[in-house]
Amino acid sequence: MVTFTLQASPSDAASWADLARRAERAGFDALTCADHPGAVATPFVALAAAAAVTSTIGLGSYVSNAGVREPMLLAADVATLDLVSGGRARLGIGAGHTPAEWRAVGRERPDVAGRVRRCMAVAEAVRALLDGEEVTVDTPELALHAARLEKPRPVQRRIPLTMGTANSTLLRWAGAHADVVGLAGLGRTLPDGYAHEVRWREADIEAQLAQVAAGAEGRAEPPELESLVQQVVVTDDAEAAAAQTAEDTGLSVAELLATPFVLIGTEDEIVASVAAHRKRWGVTRYVVRKDALDPLGAFLPRLMAAA
């Protein structure tokens, strides 16, 4: 089965509640919020509000920046969300990339290696805290001393962990430890601190999946693969709709349409693409943005059955 997650953020209470209900009715597997302090609504407050008007849809951050989020507070937020939602919380973590987020909390963004080390340490600490363990860590990247999450305790026995990344080391770590590997397909952060180069060509995707497979070697059940979709367009002219994004990313239109990071075409073409990505790459999960709710919701059951 293929699943779809909707990523969105509230602008007001009424429309947010409506969106959560609509996403659940349409059959989306989860509703997630980006976690960029100061730039969007804080995810866990928003998701708790969504929990109050829904009953089945999963809820989580996609993804929390391990560089600026402290494990004790993140674990408490996730556990509280799991409690108030009746066991529907998801844990999403990434290394972070936006320099302003570090500066806003009085830190300078570390280099890639430092961000990766902290991300792994935070993920391990948060998971241990959610599992009820006492955690002590004392490294240059992270410090916790006899930390324990006594209350609230999560409803779920194990909250699913998604690691969102395109970094080789984190892909291997996710292959070994995560429930879901969130394939971002993103490369170097560009000077604005938000945009990225992309790693969407066939060879790039194969290299990323090879890292996941190396990490997952020996696991009885490897992690699920999830693609962060950057563009969804239901259209009779896929090539025209893809042209600008292809130019912006340096890919040919054919290369762009072959990636799991865009879904462009007629309903039949998008269903065929999802089936092809499952067969070619093993991708069975997708995260799409708010503007995809109505276009994909119209034929989501067909997409979920794509094989």
Rank of each mutant, 00 (worst) to 15 (best):
residue 304 M to R: 12
residue 246 A to N: 08
residue 55 S to K: 11
residue 78 V to F: 08
residue 106 G to V: 09
residue 125 A to E: 03
residue 112 V to K: 13
residue 34 A to L: 14
residue 86 G to C: 05
residue 281 W to P: 05
residue 11 S to I: 08
residue 235 T to S: 08
residue 210 A to S: 12
residue 169 T to P: 04
residue 273 S to M: 07
residue 180 V to Q: 00
residue 306 A to M: 07
residue 73 L to I: 04
residue 150 E to F: 08
residue 137 V to A: 09
residue 23 A to D: 10
residue 17 A to D: 13
residue 198 V to T: 14
residue 164 G to S: 11
residue 131 D to E: 15
residue 2 V to F: 09
residue 25 R to L: 15
residue 86 G to T: 00
residue 205 I to F: 00
residue 72 M to D: 01
residue 38 G to N: 10
residue 237 D to R: 02
residue 185 G to S: 06
residue 173 W to H: 07
residue 87 G to K: 03
residue 23 A to K: 07
residue 282 G to P: 09
residue 121 A to Y: 11
residue 166 A to N: 03
residue 35 D to Y: 04
residue 244 Q to D: 11
residue 177 H to D: 14
residue 103 R to V: 07
residue 33 C to R: 02
residue 222 P to L: 10
residue 126 V to E: 12
residue 34 A to N: 08
residue 69 R to A: 12
residue 18 D to K: 15
residue 285 R to K: 14
residue 302 R to T: 11
residue 192 D to I: 12
residue 243 A to P: 08
residue 184 A to Y: 00
residue 242 A to M: 13
residue 170 L to V: 02
residue 77 D to L: 13
residue 148 R to Q: 10
residue 107 R to M: 14
residue 43 P to N: 11
residue 15 S to G: 07
residue 227 S to W: 10
residue 172 R to Q: 14
residue 205 I to N: 01
residue 275 A to C: 08
residue 176 A to H: 05
residue 162 T to K: 00
residue 30 A to K: 04
residue 211 Q to L: 06
residue 26 A to V: 11
residue 118 R to G: 06
residue 152 P to E: 09
residue 43 P to I: 09
residue 167 N to C: 04
residue 238 A to P: 04
residue 139 T to Q: 03
residue 265 G to L: 05
residue 26 A to N: 12
